[in-house]
């Protein structure tokens, strides 16, 4: 017969109202939640009181929180002197059991965000000493993750992330993939990138491209990842009050791309300027190979009738006699 596992503890289960001063709020060994300050939870406690007991271990001398960090902190902030608490049997030494209680308590009612999954995996490995194989086979699937070493590595790397980058990830300003890449860099670089992200908005694809440009520029100059952002033009774009955060992001990308690819950018700008000098109507499109690898140009025009066709052909004929046409083929 299947028996509810928690019944194993039932005989020793004790619910008490315990003074909060007996709780060690600084011991976060079993913390899973990233966000400890929940307005909704505070509202709930203020309105209907504490519905579910927090779980603690009898520490020495203060009690250690296993489940209910957010509840207990909210109660403390609300000025409550006591909380409904279940004191768990056993002791803090049984870390894996205690960590499992904390984990399942969270998983029972919500999805963990990537940072919380990282915190859980890190706790299981470092605090509980759970072997890698068990993390892969048991805990990654529990957390809804693919049981691969790469995934485990990526999540573990998130755990040491700079605080400001954690905020960027939680707020959705950075993708997990960007954050994973930044996780391998210095705290200074992480902080610098978070500063950048505080003023601009980037799509997932742009984040990847900007990170790659910064990595290259930093490696080329032998400086830190965010040093290229000190470029005066980049700074001006980031501080331009006339641009929206998305426009700033695009501008920063363009400027970094130009720094990384000076000759190609110059050639592209020159090509556009020369094309303009031909004075062709907008319905005539002249394009070159995106990287000018071939010398040829593609000319496309759209004529809805014979008169328009003649007009466009005349414009093209006029352009063909202009000296700047030769320069259009001469990319240097």
């Amino acid at each position: 017969m299947w028996i509810l596992p928690s019944l194993r503890y039932a005989s020793n289960m004790a619910f008490n109202e315990i003074p909060l001063e007996e709780i060690d709020f600084s011991d976060e060994s079993f913390r899973i939640s990233e966000e400890l300050d929940s307005a909704m939870l505070a509202d709930s406690l203020r309105t209907v009181g504490q519905l579910n007991a927090a779980c603690v271990l009898q520490g020495n001398p203060l009690k250690i929180i296993v489940c209910g960090f957010r509840r207990l902190m909210a109660l403390r902030r609300l000025g409550s002197p006591r909380a409904l608490i279940r004191v768990l049997p056993g002791n803090a030494a049984d870390r894996t059991r205690n960590f499992n209680l904390a984990l399942w308590d969270n998983l029972s009612h919500r999805q963990l965000n990537p940072l919380e999954k990282a915190r859980a995996l890190s706790g299981l490995r470092n605090l509980c000493g759970v072997p890698q194989e068990t993390l892969l086979e048991t805990y990654l699937p529990i957390l809804g993750l693919k049981p691969s070493e790469r995934v485990l590595r990526a999540y573990l790397s998130l755990n040491d992330l700079h605080w400001d980058l954690r905020r960027c990830l939680v707020d959705g300003r950075l993708t997990q993939s960007s954050v994973e890449k930044l996780a391998g860099m210095s705290q200074e670089s992480q902080a610098g990138f978070a500063v950048l992200m505080s003023g601009i908005r980037l799509s997932a694809a742009s984040q990847k491209k900007i990170l790659s440009l910064l990595e290259d520029l930093a490696a080329m100059a032998g400086v830190s990842l965010t040093e290229p952002l000190k470029n005066p033009e980049v700074q001006a774009a980031m501080n331009d009050p006339g641009l929206s955060p998305f426009q700033k992001g695009e501008r920063v990308y363009e400027l970094l791309y130009r720094l990384r690819n000076p000759r190609l950018s110059r050639a592209t700008e020159q090509f556009a300027a020369r094309k303009k000098l031909l004075g062709l109507p907008g319905s005539v499109q002249i394009t070159a190979d995106p990287y000018f690898e071939t010398a040829g140009l593609r000319v496309v025009f759209d004529a809805p009738n014979a008169d328009r066709f003649r007009d466009l052909a005349t414009a093209l004929e006029r352009a063909s006699r202009m000296p700047v046409l030769e320069e259009l083929f001469d990319v240097r």
């Binding site: 990287y291 000018f292 990319v331």
Partner: peptide, 13 residues
């Protein structure tokens, strides 16, 4: 820049 067969090469000039 990406070129023949997806290989990266120096910008042509």
């Amino acid at each position: 820049v990406p070129g023949h067969h997806g290989k990266l090469r120096y910008f042509r000039p």
